[in-house]
Amino acid sequence: MHDRANNPPTAATPSADGAPADPAPAQLRMIPIPRLAAHGRWRVEAMRSLNEPMLLWFTRGQGRITVSGVTRGYGPHNAIFLPAGVMHGFDVSSHVFGTAVFFGAARGLPLPETPLHLRIRDQQPQAELTGILDNIHRELEGGRPGYDRAAGHHLGLLGVWIERQVAAQDGAPAPDAAARLVARFTALVERDFRSGLGVADYAAALGVTPTHLTRVCRQCCGRSAHEIVQDRVLFEARKLLKETDLPVGEVSRALGFTTAAYFTRAFQNAVGKTPSAFRRGA
């Protein structure tokens, strides 16, 4: 984004750039996918990441999901696993239903380190996953003695289920060069989006031209490199405005804008409201 501070790449720790620290991952929980968008579809559609692993299990409807800069379609009986820190966003219509499992601190489970998009065609693994999720939900909602330990054991079975599905689908084609480049780009954006870096800075860090970077981004997800950066920054801006009491000027500074006035213009152009109006509405 233009007129933002052009600082060199850093490790992107929140304390280094003034942004509030991300909260520690919450406990294990399950949320119906439609409810994720109940407080604004930007919460699921804009590019963002989580500080905990998540599994999306779609049981009805279809749409598109972008993971690490690559967009694919999803439909019923698709399971999508996202490790912590992976940039993603997906559209969800009124016809989409399913479950999102947030792993919390993951309890030391041996989970995959890369995103997975599993299309579960056989009824047996579909039924196995449904049973595991039902058991986790029953423990979390029942409040019986030891419910948290019991839910944790079922979560371990979920990890085993994921491992088995990966083994069953072994042999899937490896990502091509464009997908690998966009994945590296989105990882850099996720690390440094608070620093005010522009597309030219990211392209230089990746050893490519801005034109080439934008071309492969459009090829993989239909968005330019600039749109990916802007989307990630604006998601964080909306999150800070809704969930914190930081003044607009502090939000602007935390996200690498050189002035609060430019932040306000950029936010209003993209969202249709000023930061203050968005906060009041939220």
Results as ranks from 00 to 15, higher is better:
residue 194 R to G: 13
residue 168 A to K: 09
residue 199 V to R: 07
residue 107 R to W: 12
residue 40 G to C: 02
residue 43 R to M: 14
residue 247 P to K: 03
residue 149 R to T: 09
residue 106 A to M: 05
residue 178 A to D: 14
residue 180 R to L: 13
residue 116 L to G: 00
residue 185 F to V: 00
residue 154 H to V: 08
residue 93 S to T: 15
residue 280 R to T: 14
residue 202 Y to P: 07
residue 186 T to D: 07
residue 6 N to G: 11
residue 255 L to S: 02
residue 200 A to H: 15
residue 75 G to N: 06
residue 10 T to R: 14
residue 142 G to Y: 09
residue 76 P to V: 00
residue 117 H to A: 04
residue 190 E to M: 06
residue 100 A to R: 03
residue 10 T to K: 10
residue 111 L to R: 04
residue 77 H to D: 15
residue 112 P to V: 00
residue 8 P to A: 10
residue 24 A to V: 11
residue 162 I to L: 15
residue 38 A to P: 02
residue 219 Q to H: 15
residue 1 M to D: 09
residue 29 R to V: 10
residue 159 G to T: 00
residue 122 D to I: 00
residue 84 A to L: 02
residue 197 L to D: 01
residue 271 V to K: 07
residue 56 L to D: 05
residue 214 T to C: 10
residue 136 I to F: 09
residue 167 A to Y: 04
residue 277 A to I: 00
residue 185 F to C: 05
residue 103 F to C: 07
residue 256 G to M: 05
residue 181 L to N: 06
residue 224 S to D: 10
residue 140 L to M: 06
residue 182 V to D: 06
residue 32 P to Y: 05
residue 81 F to S: 00
residue 63 G to V: 07
residue 35 R to S: 12
residue 183 A to T: 07
residue 106 A to F: 09
residue 210 P to M: 02
residue 217 C to Q: 04
residue 161 W to Q: 09
residue 187 A to N: 07
residue 41 R to K: 13
residue 217 C to K: 05
residue 20 P to R: 01
residue 58 F to R: 03
residue 249 G to D: 12
residue 221 C to G: 15
residue 117 H to E: 03
residue 252 S to W: 05
residue 23 P to K: 04
residue 207 G to H: 04
residue 245 D to Q: 14
residue 85 G to W: 03
residue 31 I to M: 13
residue 173 P to A: 15
residue 254 A to W: 00
residue 182 V to N: 07
residue 261 A to S: 12
residue 46 A to L: 15
residue 256 G to K: 07
residue 64 R to P: 03
residue 214 T to N: 15
residue 42 W to M: 08
residue 231 D to H: 05
residue 122 D to K: 09
residue 103 F to L: 13
residue 66 T to Y: 02
residue 144 R to L: 14
residue 262 Y to W: 13
residue 25 P to A: 01
residue 119 R to K: 11
residue 160 V to D: 14
residue 42 W to T: 07
residue 58 F to K: 06
residue 55 L to H: 02
residue 225 A to V: 04
residue 124 Q to Y: 13
residue 220 C to I: 04
residue 52 E to T: 08
residue 220 C to W: 05
residue 245 D to M: 10
residue 148 D to R: 12
residue 163 E to N: 04
residue 51 N to C: 07
residue 55 L to T: 01
residue 7 N to R: 13
residue 199 V to G: 06
residue 173 P to D: 11
residue 218 R to A: 03
residue 257 F to E: 01
residue 255 L to W: 01
residue 81 F to H: 02
residue 217 C to V: 03
residue 193 F to G: 01
residue 104 G to Q: 02
